[in-house]
Amino acid sequence: MKEMTYAEAVREALREEMIRDDSVFLIGEDVGTYGGAFGVSYGLVDEFGEDRVRDTPISEAGIMGAATGAALMGMRPVAEIMFMDFTTIAMDQLVNQAAKLRFMFGGKAKVPLVLRTPGGSGTGAAAHHSQSLEAWFVHVPGLKVVMPSTPYDAKGLLVASIRDDNPVIFVEHKLLYKTKGPVPEEEYTIPLGTADVKRTGRDLTIVATSIMVPRVLAAAETLAGQGIDAEVVDPRTLKPLDEETIFKSVIKTGRVLIAHEACKTGGAGAEIAARIVESDAFNYLDAPIVRLAGLDIPVPYNRNLERRMVPQVEDIVAAARELVG
């Protein structure tokens, strides 16, 4: 194992896959010399050249269309959309084209592409640079949605996403880029659709994604000091969703708290809650499912308001205490 940041883990996955497979290339705004807005692809243009680390004009629909067209031809493009908020501009190419071409063509085409995009708030960038829009993509048949929370997961899931023959939305989190963690020296992948139990416990299950995972783990430590033993499940991919790992945990603990940063209404937590209710795990619930999510507002600029909008460690502790009660 070696220690590296989440951003370095993403970069290492990109680099290793580009070495392994010459059909893999990067395309996006400022991904070359600049290294992407968050420096994730920094240095790769020097190693692979401007053809395979391709800067584009500010043309999100063009980027997604170029990636989709190239994927139809058997290339494996990794497109970067600088902020998840800007996926709105690429929506036709993503939702109507990339996601649906295979099905519409009777299964006779493949679209093996990855769209990397940083989501989430906490940087003071307000409502056009802070959104968590993953639920939109979960809703679209033909897309896969991945949300890593650690450097280990980021690398293993990105390698798997690049090798996947489908369009994958790979949602990184700006606040996680500098977080560090162990990453194996040797090659590895994490199959899409496998959740990870980040902490085992017996009193309640907390299902958390992306930035919520470290917050929930911190909350779990506080809760442990108060005699509450939380199990933390990170789905890691929202589509496909590893229901079994979630159900197994719910059956064990009988209580569920779901935490995500995205707005509550129509968020991925609603889908996870519904799946639990529809399953046998429902019979093991000792209390109603609780969702802790972003407020249903655009992300505010003011530091305190921005913080207030999204679940924090203390909110998770309070919600868990009330649930276990």
């Binding site: 290339f25 053809d51 395979r52 629909a61 063009g62 997604m64 269309g65 170029a66 990636a67 989709t68 067209g69 190239a70 994927a71 139809l72 031809m73 058997g74 290339m75 493009p77 036709d92 190419q93 109507n96 084209q97």
Partner: peptide, 15 residues
């Protein structure tokens, strides 16, 4: 919808 796809097809042919 197909106009940007042609960019990707052309790009892969060139690459």
């Amino acid at each position: 919808g197909g106009i940007p796809l042609a960019v990707g097809v052309g790009l892969s042919l060139k690459m």
